[in-house]
């Protein structure tokens, strides 16, 4: 791949998905895009770049973005963000939303569904404390391919073993040969939708809790700031944002403030809350 071809790909990915392709990620390009070439019978990487540049095939462009997206995920990944949900956020919002009995949650980079399904299982476990509540879990991703898998809710043995407590596997999954499918009542709790985070997501409506873990690391600072500012706009003044443990907003945006008590938990900054509170009407 020539310098010019790499630059063409870099500009394309940035413009279309926000992905920042740094020169040290050059090694990833060939390994990940080889499958796109095979799938579309394109003879070389150079030819693939030419196809992208010509803008002739939306399918090739989408497949290229999907191939360059990292979809690493597993149930209850990192554990702490889910303990935070169960022990801190859920009790807090059960109290604060006692009148409306409504809770809206957004998983902004849902990948193959393990994160939203983990939250759905925790909500199911807490259902006795939330009778009559309307709970929306919206799970979005830029890849239609992973969303398709997420909606099916079928996982292999390796996937159900990484982080999923065995008692929850027994309780919420059905064995189908060497695959495991999550129960239909858990699947129906999650609304999977295609979303490119660099595009407008105001139509999704407001969210009390947003999980946006391990995705902003792929964006440059300007894109991060823009996405975080718009996420903050989707949150009510007491909304909560959960980022990956290694992610920080320091020096990127003042729309959100770190909760010093919990790693990865952010609230809406006092300076911006109230002014942009979204209305709880007309959603979905």
């Amino acid at each position: 791949m020539t310098e010019l071809e790499f630059e063409t790909l870099r500009v394309f990915l940035k413009a279309r998905s926000g992905l920042a392709l740094s020169p040290d990620k050059r090694y990833l390009v060939e390994s990940r895009l080889a499958s796109v070439c095979t799938r579309f019978k394109i003879e070389s990487l150079s030819r693939l770049i030419w196809e992208i540049k010509s803008g002739r095939s939306q399918a090739v462009e989408n497949a290229t973005i999907e191939a360059m997206t990292t979809n690493e995920t597993f149930f209850f990944r990192d554990k702490a963000p889910f303990d935070l949900f169960q022990d801190v956020l859920l009790p807090r919002f059960i109290k604060e939303r006692a009148a409306s009995r409504r809770l809206r949650i957004w998983c902004a980079a849902a990948s193959t569904g393990q994160e939203p399904y983990s939250l759905a299982m925790l909500l199911k476990e807490a259902s006795a404390r939330m009778p009559g509540w309307q709970i929306d879990i919206v799970a979005t991703d830029i890849s239609n391919e992973v969303l398709e898998k997420a909606r099916a809710g079928i996982y292999n043995q390796f996937e159900v073993q990484r982080g999923l407590p065995i008692r929850l596997l027994v309780k919420y999954f059905t064995q189908k040969g060497d695959q495991w499918q999550i129960a239909s009542d858990i699947r129906s709790m999650v609304d999977f939708r295609y979303l490119n985070l660099i595009e407008d997501f105001g139509r999704l409506g407001p969210f009390d809790i947003v999980y946006c873990r391990n995705v902003l690391i792929y964006f440059d600072t300007q894109t991060k700031a823009d996405v975080l500012r718009r996420i903050a706009q989707q949150m009510p003044p007491d909304g909560a944002l959960v980022l990956g443990a290694s992610e920080t907003i320091l020096g990127i945006t003042d729309a959100l403030t770190l909760d010093p008590s919990y790693r990865g938990l952010y609230g809406k900054s006092a300076s911006v809350s109230g002014a942009s509170r979204p209305a709880l009407v007309g959603i979905r």
Partner: peptide
């Protein structure tokens, strides 16, 4: 199984 699975179980 592999190390990731076992480590996740031990962590849990």
């Amino acid at each position: 199984f592999d190390k990731a699975i076992l480590a996740a179980k031990f962590q849990e």
